[in-house]
């Protein structure tokens, strides 16, 4: 499955780096703790979080994640979006809370 498929299925909003929609998804990881994501996420994972801080971009970039999905209707700060464009990191947003977004993605990737 590609990032674009997830965007279509869950009606996600694309906030940065549209070119990343063609990335393949290897799975998903859910966490709001950057150290956890650094330690446990895998290359190509989509990362669900409600963190909107600038540092999420660096984590996604270092770990080669396929996209960040900001959950719970939160909006990424402007500087986060700007950084994401520079670093070629795709940021998506959804109004769904973390539990439900994870549940739906789990069913799609199964």
């Amino acid at each position: 499955m590609k990032v674009k498929d997830l965007v279509d299925q869950l009606s996600l909003d694309v906030r940065s780096f549209k070119d990343g929609l063609g990335n393949d998804i290897t799975g998903a990881y859910v966490s709001d703790l950057l150290s956890d994501v650094m330690g446990n996420s895998k290359k190509g994972n989509v990362w669900l979080t409600l963190q909107t801080h600038l540092n999420i971009v660096a984590v996604a970039s270092m770990k080669d994640l396929s996209a960040i999905i900001i959950v719970g209707g939160r909006q990424a700060q402007e500087e986060t979006i700007k950084k994401a464009e520079q670093e070629k990191v795709t940021i998506l947003t959804t109004a769904l809370p973390s539990f439900e977004a994870s549940g739906r993605i789990y069913q799609l990737l199964k």
Partner: peptide
């Protein structure tokens, strides 16, 4: 957290 949420959902 992903798998736990996914299974329960």
């Amino acid at each position: 957290m992903y798998t736990a949420s996914g299974r329960l959902f």
